[in-house]
Design a protein around this nucleic acid. Sequence first.
DNA 1: ATGACTGCAAACTCTTTGCACAACA
DNA 2: TGTTGTGCAAAGAGTTTGCAGTCAT
Lengths: 150, 150
Amino acid sequence: MAALAEHPTVDEELVARLRARGLRVTSQRVVIHRALRTHAQHLSAEQVFEHVAVSLPGTSLPTVYATLELLVELGLARRVSTGAGPTLFDSRLEPHAHAVCSECGALADIDEPLRAEAAVRRARAAGFRPDHAQLVIWGRCAKCAENQRS
Amino acid sequence: MAALAEHPTVDEELVARLRARGLRVTSQRVVIHRALRTHAQHLSAEQVFEHVAVSLPGTSLPTVYATLELLVELGLARRVSTGAGPTLFDSRLEPHAHAVCSECGALADIDEPLRAEAAVRRARAAGFRPDHAQLVIWGRCAKCAENQRS
DNA sequence: ATGACTGCAAACTCTTTGCACAACA
DNA sequence: TGTTGTGCAAAGAGTTTGCAGTCAT
């Protein structure tokens, strides 16, 4: 737990939530959380691992996986499963849609309110306890649509 | 291609779409498509494989995977990636939401119009070519919410 | 001091690939 | 007859598990 004095505001919420659950504040957890928050959104576990390797060499991939799952449980990250390639992790917590290219797998944020209330209400009426909703739009990104005029 | 005379209406569309693309109508393709249409929705490749093993023994798992992907391309099935467990394939083509239990992975249909038009328009404006949208609601199913009062 | 957490290696699940044979058109 | 499609076996990607040792509390 040294050399971690910077980024106070980014870390605060993580530390608070770990403490609230009686979980330990380890350097790995701090660095992994920071990687997700400070780099581009939608990182795979492998990408997080690469970023973390710079700031905290020796961190293992299984720890990255475990920590990312923990962050999701703590409500500090969201899983984005595109079904193509690895699962991505997103530190943007506001509900927003994702556009996924079925050709190259590229992922883009769509800033637009979800309008999922009706479906969420319907799910709740069926005994389901909704946590959050996610809208994924499948299609072709501009680049792939141009390259392959089919 | 014998003993496949039943289920005419279920098969018709598949045969038409295969012919239209100059693709061959094989017994495996017919049986796999039929399995997806006649059994409960949301089957994994493995589950399709098991069902197909009854009606056409000897069919291989790689063929099941290849054919399911083909059905998706032909617009006769939809991929549903929950991010937990294997990819599921859905023969219901009308847009509808899915509720996924983050505890046990159970998947349920939510019959509710999507209201994804605004997000789709936004994606299209960014050069993206939308194909279809999917709304996934994460949470806990009735059973898991009851078992584990946390 | 003690129990949670990590690193390592290995296993595991799901899916794809390469190649020889089979069968639709 | 000429490919397209299939089966088999093997490989591959992504993720999880078991266990011994480490470190936050």
